[in-house]
């Protein structure tokens, strides 16, 4: 038992690597703060284009885009963007490569969620707003989007958590975020405590969010909504 504790939960190692992990965590948070808003904005733009256009071609193009990028593992996109672009003479920094590859796929997911939310708002809401003289844009901004966002909040949060977790893929590009820091510490100190600690940090950060979504969903089930 003591041996297991010393191996996986070694306090001395933990204290030693904590500063390193925390700076890794800071990098993780910064990445998430870059990637999540980018994907959300991209997804919102796509969802608005899809729901507001009269052109069938635009809708089909957006559907193709969404399905195409939903078909790739995130890691494949990350690797492809960062390792294939140098062959045509484009050198992207890891952050930019990561941001581009995440933007491509997360905007697809956010688009699906927001589109579902927007189309679920009854036509009467738009008619009521338009009947008072509000423009199409004002109606979207004040009547449709607030309701749509509220209705799909659990899905939006769930997707954002997935993206936050996805920042761990940055370790593959050698960016010293939380997982990468833990892995380097583990190989230097030859002890897995940093990995366990990193997992615990992810857990401490995201468990409340996961709980919150579950509670939100079950309270909505109870309301029959």
């Amino acid at each position: 038992m003591q041996e297991i504790l010393d191996t996986f939960f070694n306090p001395a190692v933990a204290v030693q690597v904590l500063p390193m992990l925390l700076s890794g965590l800071w990098m993780t948070v910064k990445l998430a703060a870059l990637i999540i808003p980018l994907g959300l904005l991209g997804g919102l733009a796509l969802a608005l284009a899809h729901t507001q256009t009269r052109s069938r071609k635009v809708r089909i193009a957006i559907n193709l885009y969404v399905d195409f990028f939903r078909s790739f593992p995130q890691l494949v996109l990350v690797i492809f963007v960062s390792f294939a672009t140098p062959f045509i003479g484009i050198e992207l920094s890891p952050v930019v490569a990561l941001a581009i590859s995440f933007m491509l796929s997360t905007s697809a997911y956010y688009c699906e969620i927001l589109r579902a939310g927007i189309t679920a708002i009854p036509a009467g809401q738009t008619e009521a707003a338009r009947s008072t003289g509000m423009s199409a844009t004002q109606t979207l901004r004040h009547v449709v989007l607030p309701q749509a966002f509220r209705n799909v909040l659990p899905d939006l949060l769930g997707n954002s958590i997935e993206i936050f977790k996805g920042t761990s893929l940055a370790s593959v590009l050698g960016m010293s975020e939380l997982l990468y820091s833990a892995q380097s510490a583990q190989s230097v100190l030859f002890n897995p405590t940093p990995l366990v600690l990193a997992a615990a940090i992810y857990l401490a950060l995201l468990w409340p969010a996961v709980r919150f979504i579950s509670a939100l969903e079950s309270s909505r089930r109870a309301q029959g909504g």
């Binding site: 996805g166 897995p192 990995l195 366990v196 990193a198 468990w207």
Partner: peptide
């Protein structure tokens, strides 16, 4: 519920690396 929450809250890559690189220590 705890089992579900923990696995939903941790990045799959972290779980994979933890299992693959930490277990050999024991």
């Amino acid at each position: 519920v705890g089992y579900v929450d923990v696995l939903r809250a941790m990045p799959p890559l972290v779980i994979l690396i933890l299992v693959y690189f930490a277990l050999p220590y024991v």
